[in-house]
Amino acid sequence: MKTPVLFALLLILPAALFGEETLDQRVREIAHQLRCPTCQAMSVKESEAGLATNMKMKIREMLREGKSEKEILAFFVQRYGEWILRSPKKEGINLLLWFSPGILIALAALGLFFRLKGKNAHTHTTDLPPLSAQEKAEINQALKEIEP
């Protein structure tokens, strides 16, 4: 009698434990994407504040109800605004935020390229003013003095 019960427990227990672990992991993943509303520069996952705890409980409850990550994030965005997301969505005006560092680096590289190109060109060109007659005479005199 005991053996089948133990066998059943051995089968059920790991499944239950791993199931809960996966749920915990998913709660953490979603909570990491949300900003803690009562603290500054912290995610809901990191925060132990009362409201952050409420939010984690809500995420867990919604996951248990079968809601997707997208639906859960939308739930919070609808109530708190897009501000609640730690990474702004990659759409609309937010695209500027996402791509401006890249654009800035590209422009800086372009600027550097043109600057270096200009410098090199400047080194090779001889756009110095021509020697005056007096300077030429002084050079010739100096050369004569050097030559034996």
């Binding site: 509303p37 009562t38 409201l51 409420n54 809500k58 109530r79 708190y80 605004g81």
Partner: peptide
């Protein structure tokens, strides 16, 4: 509270 987006 969460439905009303309470922050504090």
């Amino acid at each position: 509270s969460l439905n009303y987006g309470i922050t504090a």
